[in-house]
Simulated assay, not measured.
Amino acid sequence: MEIALLFTDWLGKPVWMWLGFISIVIALLVFDLGVLHRDNREIEVRESLILSSMYISLGLLFGAWVWWQLGAEPGMNYLTGFVVEKTLALDNVFVIALVFSFFAVPRKYQHRVLFWGILGVIVLRAIMIGLGATLVSQFSWVLYIFAAFLIITGIKMLWLGDKEPEIGNNPVIRFVRRLINVTDEHHGKNFFVKKRDPVTGKLAWFATPLFMALVMVEIADVIFAVDSVPAIFAITTDPFIVYTSNIFAILGLRALYFALSAMIQRFHYLKPALAVVLIFIGSKIFVADMLALEKFPASVSLGVTLAIITAGIFYSLWRTSRTGAPQ
């Protein structure tokens, strides 16, 4: 009976596939926090690059397994989603760097914020992808709304350029400060600390800047998920491919952050490339309809996406190679 349950279909795939994926994710999180980062310390760029390479390799190996197990089209859809989500994560890195700077989070505690932030991301993405999958399965026209949204988002990214978000004026920060006690002083690795209330003189729990940074990291991911979830659904509606490609791309974000935050300006022209990718992904749904295609070819989608992002990376590195800043 138990073995039969493993082969039961759930969200389009056997239960054993989902359990296998979840087991890998849990093992990576335990290894990360329990082995690599038991002590709070600064992560150097070299270590960050090594860990990032490991996570990217694992994500690509999982994609190869998807290709072998499910076929070429699901494999290419996974790789396309993985590449798009990984590139979107670069923009997320920039916002996280602003959050850490605003709250003056010491480098040795930044990994702690990112780790718990990733746990929240895994849950939030599962909810959003579950809702998206339900909507698409019940109302196929929702895909056209997603596609139009991606096109508008891409055009908006090209139009606004590198306008920085205003962290200090964020309404979420003001709401949290009204809701709970917040202290402006850091207290080591603690998200909450017990101290005397300056008004009542009684002991009370206060949220530290570390917790406020965690809240903003989660909010930032919700905002970015509004782009990334429609993007992956415009590539494929398979919940397994959608969720696994998203999570594998996000898992390496912690490691990638410490390397990219030190050289984020070198990728100045990657954001316009990403905007073009979003416009392309949104447009291909309408193009497929105009050409009377059942689906836009996965190989073309992957090839065009890789070409645009690669061009953005190399153009950025070329333009910033002499000064280290956009010319």
Rank of each mutant, 00 (worst) to 15 (best):
S321A: 13
D227R: 02
S52E: 04
A104F: 02
T244S: 15
D9T: 14
L143G: 06
F192E: 14
I309S: 01
T153Y: 01
D184A: 14
I235W: 03
I145V: 15
F296Y: 14
G154V: 03
I235T: 01
K194S: 09
N181I: 00
N181D: 09
F240L: 05
A207N: 10
I247A: 08
M76A: 13
I96D: 01
M216I: 12
T208W: 09
I241C: 03
P230Y: 03
I3F: 12
T80K: 05
N40A: 14
A207H: 04
K284W: 00
L114Y: 05
D227S: 11
R38Y: 12
E2V: 10
Q69I: 10
V30H: 09
W159L: 04
P14I: 08
A288L: 10
Y55D: 07
S245D: 10
D39P: 00
L60T: 13
R41T: 08
T305S: 12
V276F: 06
S101V: 01
V121M: 12
G71I: 10
N170E: 14
V123T: 10
F211I: 02
K86R: 12
A249R: 08
M263I: 11
A204C: 01
G12H: 06
I180K: 07
K271S: 07
K13G: 03
R107C: 00
H37M: 04
I308D: 06
L5G: 00
V136D: 06
S101Q: 12
F31Q: 11
F191P: 05
L317M: 11
P165F: 05
L6M: 13
P272C: 08
E73Q: 11
P14K: 03
L19Q: 07
W10L: 15
F149K: 13
M54N: 02
S301N: 10
R322A: 07
A288C: 04
I173F: 04
L210D: 09
L260Q: 01
I50T: 10
V217Q: 09
L98T: 05
F296T: 08
F314I: 12
P230D: 09
D39H: 13
S48Q: 07
S283F: 10
L19I: 09
A292T: 09
F146E: 03
G63N: 04
T236R: 03
V222L: 15
L135A: 15
T236E: 05
D162R: 07
F102R: 05
F102V: 05
R177T: 08
L317R: 12
Y78H: 07
V172E: 04
I241S: 00
I151G: 10
V287L: 15
I223W: 12
W18K: 11
I56T: 11
F175Q: 09
F211E: 01
F233P: 03
